[in-house]
Design a protein around this nucleic acid. Sequence first.
DNA 1: TATTGTTATACTCTATAACTATA
DNA 2: TATAGTTATAGAGTATAACAATA
Lengths: 160, 160
Amino acid sequence: MVEPVKKPTRKTDGFVANDTTLRTFVGYHMKRAFNVVQADLAKTLKPFELRMLTYTALVLIVDNPGLSQSQLADAMDVERPNLVVIVDELEQRELIVRQRVPTDRRAYALRVTLKGQHLFQQATDAVTAHEKALLGDIDTGAQDTMIATLIHIQSGGAKG
Amino acid sequence: MVEPVKKPTRKTDGFVANDTTLRTFVGYHMKRAFNVVQADLAKTLKPFELRMLTYTALVLIVDNPGLSQSQLADAMDVERPNLVVIVDELEQRELIVRQRVPTDRRAYALRVTLKGQHLFQQATDAVTAHEKALLGDIDTGAQDTMIATLIHIQSGGAKG
DNA sequence: TATTGTTATACTCTATAACTATA
DNA sequence: TATAGTTATAGAGTATAACAATA
């Protein structure tokens, strides 16, 4: 059975903030919801010794074999210098390999190993189950609308 | 006129990641969307010398005059030690005051000053306008559904 | 010249333990 | 004994500049 993350025990009384202004403050709700999802995700990935960043990188390499570190950084919205340590970690654990590209010897082509493929499958099964449990009692249509809207925001923020 | 954040210039080719696995990975979409909103927010708040954390604290103190630091930390989902520096900053800028509570001399009651009230109003006008611009071309019903779902996730993650 | 990957570095946000003063 | 606020500290995540190798 999958069990959702439980909120840490707060010793404060049952204070509920007045949300007059917060009501329309989208960033606030996004941050709080992301905190919950991120905490659940961290707990789910811990047995596999993966963090959100390393898991996301692994997913992208599995689904896009041969992509470069620049492309991966772009897809992950992470600066290239910060991606180096992530790729280092996955490589040291022999989950992926860096292959020199013959046609452009500056770049690396990233690919999963068999070991990486197996870990990816196990971790993805766990993540899928946990997210399902986390969103379980939310209307499917609302879930789809939320995801579509989140994706829309990403492109919307770009076209400035 | 309000102008949305523009994506930093990426020199990578038009690589678009295959989203086979990512499609159902809610945390991924939440993080990317939050990145966009957070970047827009940071830019919006910069003229007021506020960050998301200090702005959120200011909002909560305005809407909940007299609340304690513990209650504020709870409402903001921030550990109490981390809140101290946030309250320090607002107090040093004379946007809020710490008032000793006569009935419980351990606690502080937090209240905005007139200066804080003015800055809150200006910042909130700017944030509201920017978020409106950011979500402008998204269907109003979808926006409401997303926010409701984000709020639902917060309580859903707690009931474990 | 420009780009890939890299190093170094700094800054923000977050998390925990332990202290003080009050209750 | 427990709580409010605090200090110190360590860990993530993020952002920028500058470098070597290659294009």
